[in-house]
Design a protein around this nucleic acid. Structure first.
Length: 455
DNA sequence: ATGCCTTTGAAGTAT
DNA sequence: ATACTTCAAAGGCAT
C-alpha cells in the first residue's frame, strides 16, 4: 500500500497513522514497483514541512492553544485574526499558482522559497482521470451552489490569489453567522473555493461548508443559499440565537479523496449507498500510488493549516462528543471481555512489546489476524469466548459464521470490508459486496468496482 | 426526525 | 507513551 513515511515531518504529526494493512511483502513489492521510493517520500515530507510552514503552523498552533480556553471575544478575535491573516497574504503570501492545481493559489508555506518546487511532480503529478480537476470535487460546494457575487466586489483573484478585502464589512453584504468573518469556513476554504469558483465569485468565499448551524444537519445548498446570499435584515433573528456555529473538522486526505471520487464510483458502480461506496473507495485508496495519495495528504495538510489560521481557537474538542455515543454504548454491550491489548497479547502468547493485539487499528498488523483468527478473542452475547472460528480465504478476513458469533463490534472494521449490515443487505448491495469481497486485497485491479451495472 | 452504516486519518480522551 | 474514541462526508436505510 502506498504510504507516506512519517519522517516526523507533518506539522500535524499524523503520518504515523499511515499504517499499511497489507502484508509487508505486498507492500514491498509495490514499493519496488514504484519509482517513488522511501527516500522520495522522505524528501516529499521534508519538502512539505518547510521553514515557513513550520513557523506559521507553530505560531498558529501556539495561538490556537493559548486561545483554547478563551471563549470570550469570540467574534472580534476571529475577525482580528483574519485581518492579520489577510494582511499577511497581502504581503505576498499567496502569489504563486500551483502548477498541479491550475486554479489554486498557494500560500508561500507550500512553496517555500522555491525549496518545495510545486513542479516537483511529487505531489501534483496525479493523473486527473475522469476529466475532473483535482480540486473540483474537493470543493464541497460546486459552482452550482453559488450565485454570482455582487458586482461591486472584486473578482480578480488571479494576481492576489485569495485576497480577501479586509476593509469591507462583509456582514454588511451577507448575513454571516454569529462568528462573522472569523467563522469563515475552512475546508477547501476561502482560498480554494473562492479561486475555483471563477470570476464573479465572492472572493471571501463566505460562508463555508465547515460552518454548520448549531442545529446540525444542513444541506450544502441550503447552507449557502441561506448564508452566503442571505440578506442583512435577517440579522434580528440571529440575535435571538447567538449560538456559535459549528465549525467542522478539516477533511483528512481520505475524506478529500472520497469527495473527489465518490461521484465516479457512484457512476461506475450504479451504487448510491455510501457505506458500500466507501468500502470501494477505501480499497481504491489503498490501491493508489504514493504519488496519488501524496496529493491528498498534501491537500489535507493545507486544509488543516488553513483551518488553523482561520480558527486559531478552534479545536476538534469543540465538536467532540456531540454525536451520539453509540460506540460507547455498544462497547458496554460487548464488553463481556474483549480484553485489554495487554491481556490479549498474553492470552495469545504474543510479544507484549512488538506484537499487536486489540482492535486492529493502526500500528502493526495483528498477528492473530494474520494467523487467521481474531485480533481479540470475540465473545458471544453471554460473554463466552469464541476463538477464531474461521480461517481466512485468500487473504479475506474471516467472516461471521453467524450474527451471534460475530458481533460486528468485535470485528475490526479494517479487516472486514464486507460486513453485511442491515443497510447493505439489499440485493444490489449484497451482490456488490460479494463481488468486491472476491477482489479484496487485490490492489492491482484497475476496476475494483465490478458491480452490477444494472439492477 | 434521527441515527446507522462504512471508509481513513486527525486529533481528541483515557489509561 | 500508548490505547482507544470521536468526527469529518455521503446518502440510503431502519427505527
Amino acid at each position: 500500500m502506498p504510504q507516506l513515511s512519517s519522517g516526523g515531518g507533518d506539522d500535524q504529526g499524523a503520518n504515523d497513522e499511515m499504517i499499511s494493512f497489507k502484508d509487508e511483502g505486498e507492500q514491498d513489492e509495490k514499493i519496488q514497483e514504484n519509482a517513488f521510493t522511501e527516500r522520495d517520500l522522505a524528501d516529499l515530507k521534508s519538502s512539505l514541512v518547510n521553514e515557513s510552514e513550520t513557523n506559521q503552523s507553530s505560531n498558529a498552533a501556539a495561538v490556537r492553544r493559548s486561545q483554547q480556553n478563551e471563549h470570550r471575544g469570540y467574534q472580534e478575535k476571529h475577525r482580528e485574526h483574519l485581518d492579520s491573516v489577510s494582511k499577511h497574504q497581502d504581503g505576498g503570501m499567496y502569489k504563486t499558482a500551483y502548477p498541479g492545481y491550475p486554479f489554486l493559489m498557494l500560500p508561500d508555506p507550500y512553496i517555500p522559497n522555491g525549496s518545495m518546487s510545486p513542479s516537483s511532480n511529487k505531489v501534483s503529478v496525479v493523473q486527473q482521470s475522469h476529466g475532473m480537476h483535482p480540486l473540483t470535487s474537493l470543493l464541497p460546494y460546486s459552482n452550482d451552489h453559488f450565485n454570482p457575487s455582487p458586482p461591486h466586489l472584486p473578482t480578480d483573484m488571479s494576481q492576489k490569489g485569495v485576497h480577501r478585502p479586509q476593509s469591507q464589512d462583509i456582514s454588511g453584504f451577507y448575513s454571516l453567522p454569529p462568528g462573522g468573518v472569523g467563522q469563515m469556513p475552512p475546508s477547501m476554504g476561502w482560498f480554494s473555493h473562492s479561486l475555483m469558483l471563477g470570476p464573479g465569485m465572492h472572493p471571501t468565499g463566505i460562508p463555508h461548508p465547515a460552518i454548520m448551524p448549531p442545529s446540525g444537519k444542513l444541506d450544502h445548498h441550503d447552507h449557502y443559499d441561506r448564508n452566503m446570499y442571505a440578506k442583512p435584515h435577517q440579522e434580528p433573528k440571529r440575535e435571538k440565537e447567538p449560538k456559535k456555529p459549528v465549525i467542522k473538522k478539516p477533511l483528512n486526505a481520505f475524506m478529500l479523496y472520497m469527495k473527489e471520487m465518490r461521484a465516479k464510483v457512484i457512476a461506475e458502480c450504479t451504487l448510491k449507498e455510501s457505506a458500500a461506496i466507501n468500502q470501494i473507495l477505501g480499497r481504491r485508496w489503498h490501491a493508489l500510488t504514493r504519488e496519488e495519495q501524496a496529493k491528498y495528504y498534501e491537500l489535507a495538510r493545507k486544509e488543516r493549516q488553513l483551518h488553523m489560521q482561520l480558527y486559531p481557537s478552534w479545536s476538534a474538542r469543540d465538536n467532540y462528543g456531540k454525536k451520539k455515543r453509540r460506540k460507547r454504548e455498544k462497547q458496554q454491550d460487548s464488553s463481556a471481555d474483549p480484553g485489554s491489548p495487554k491481556k490479549c497479547r498474553a492470552r495469545f502468547g504474543l510479544n507484549q512489546q512488538t506484537d499487536w493485539c486489540g482492535p486492529c487499528r493502526r500500528k502493526k498488523k495483528c498477528i492473530r489476524y494474520l494467523q487467521g483468527g481474531w485480533c481479540t478473542s470475540p465473545t458471544s452475547s453471554d460473554g463466552s469466548a469464541i476463538d477464531s472460528p474461521l480461517s481466512p480465504v485468500d487473504g479475506i478476513p474471516p467472516q461471521p459464521a453467524s450474527p451471534l458469533h460475530n458481533p460486528l463490534h468485535l470485528m475490526p472494521s479494517k479487516h472486514t470490508p464486507l460486513i453485511l449490515s442491515k443497510s447493505t443487505t439489499t440485493e444490489l448491495s449484497f451482490k456488490a459486496l460479494i463481488e468486491s469481497s472476491q477482489q479484496h486485497d487485490n490492489i492491482h485491479h484497475h476496476h475494483d468496482c465490478t458491480l452490477p451495472k444494472s439492477h
